[in-house]
Design a protein around this nucleic acid. Structure first.
Lengths: 247, 247
DNA sequence: TCTCAAATATTCGTTGACGGATATACGGAG
DNA sequence: CTCCGTATATCCGTCAACGAATATTTGAGA
């Protein structure tokens, strides 16, 4: 087994990892990195912006992971700076690759945030917008599947790239989830549809502050303090940044 | 169907959406928002940091979506500022909820980035670190399932929250994918295992620059320019920020 | 040969994200 | 009653992210 070091990295933008990998292959200048990533369709998996590219390169230089090789003027092109990877950079790249592949990171997908706030929309509206999502997901899935077939025909087969297959799997899983969820809301699978609806009904008049307040409290009783408290999320890298804790 | 407006939002941090939803329920002060989110376990789905909280509140005020209600000194506690949602804020919240739920956002999960750079590790090492990921995923899944059962017993059943079920589905899907991937690499399901291995072998001596260079070019021939080019990713919100394009 | 669009290549100013500091209040131990 | 740890509540300085501006070269066509 290879040792996996979980460390707080100085440069943490995945674009920096891509830069390290590219320079591990061969030295090149920033614009060429961008071009290469684009050529290989990596920009679909790694967010690539000019501003960020030059920023991370600068950070990598300062961290000693890459270094300026030379500044050339080839043809009559504008001046370019060629970078190369250092020994420290190679080892950083390896350790980072190991970490990113081995250790699920706590990320915060927007849709999960949306789901966690779902009761803020009335139930009929919620199911409607989720239907829309289903359509989008189907379209995305179709497009990827089509792309994969194309690639297969062109015989550059297998590796229209693993990351695309990963994305596809994720989309399919989400699609199944959302379809089930819609069904579950409509059929009151959770058993609080009435309450949910009522809370929104009660708000509508909008004039009567008293009603709204009562309805709201009902809801709080449901979602609020539950006795059960705190499983202490020690999974995060820092362990710092304490947040409030009610009795 | 409800109209879904895809707009570039002034305030785009999902924490701001949470703030709007909370203030839609009732006016409160920042610290209370944090406490409430924590109480309801929303911080597992919505990244919550003090710094960011006060930042987004300030941004929301400036955008006219919330406003200062009053500054109280209750008991002898330090002074607190109570905020309330405005009409504009309510409509922003609704439209944002519709968008976030209806429209899959292009996000860039780290693991996908890692997968896209997978060839940078030699194949044996790749499968090994992926095995490690499998272990982590199993542990995470187990923990969530355990939590769901607990909740069911305590009869606050159904809604140990949808977002948790979503996360669970995602983890399960990823687990299946990674297990398949490991198998596929080991059995050379893609048919380039030898090449992949060789490239890394050839680099190892590290002294002989000539060899390294040849090996590298082989690999480029494989991954590199493929004739097929550019399906023009118009899916992103901006449509701006053009990147290079090789012939 | 002149022009104009596209490709090449990089820089810079703004701003949101957030770690860590700050400050006050309360309750219990001694 | 006084010390101190914890809960309450907010602020601020730093820095990465990135949109947009800048500047030069090439090539195609009029």
């Amino acid at each position: 087994m290879y040792k996996i070091t979980l460390m707080k990295r100085n440069v943490s933008n995945p674009l920096a990892l891509a830069v390290l990998v590219l320079l591990y292959e061969r030295s090149m200048h920033p614009y060429e990195m961008a071009a290469t990533l684009r050529e290989r369709h990596k920009e679909e998996s790694i967010k690539l912006r000019y501003g960020s590219l030059y920023t991370v390169i600068d950070l990598l230089v300062r961290a000693g992971f890459i270094s300026e090789k030379k500044t050339t003027r080839e043809g009559n092109r504008p001046e370019r700076t060629i970078y190369e990877i250092t020994a420290a950079g190679e080892s950083e790249m390896k350790s980072w690759m190991r970490e990113i592949l081995s250790t699920p990171a706590k990320e915060f997908p927007q849709f999960e945030a949306g789901l966690s706030l779902l009761p803020a929309l009335p139930p009929e509206e919620a199911t409607d917008v989720l239907e829309t999502r289903v359509e989008f997901l189907k379209k995305d899935i179709e497009q990827i599947e089509h792309g994969l077939e194309e690639a297969k025909k062109m015989k550059l087969a297998a590796l229209f790239s693993i990351e695309t297959e990963y994305r596809l799997a994720g989309l399919q899983s989400e699609l199944a989830f959302v379809e089930k969820l819609i069904e579950s809301i409509r059929s009151d699978g959770c058993g609080y549809l009435a309450e949910w609806k009522n809370w929104h009904e009660a708000r509508k008049p909008e004039k009567n502050a008293k009603n709204a307040k009562n309805a709201k409290n009902e809801k709080n009783g449901k979602n609020g303090t539950t006795g059960k408290d705190e499983k202490n999320g020690k999974n995060e890298k820092t362990g710092k940044n304490k947040m409030p804790r009610r009795k």
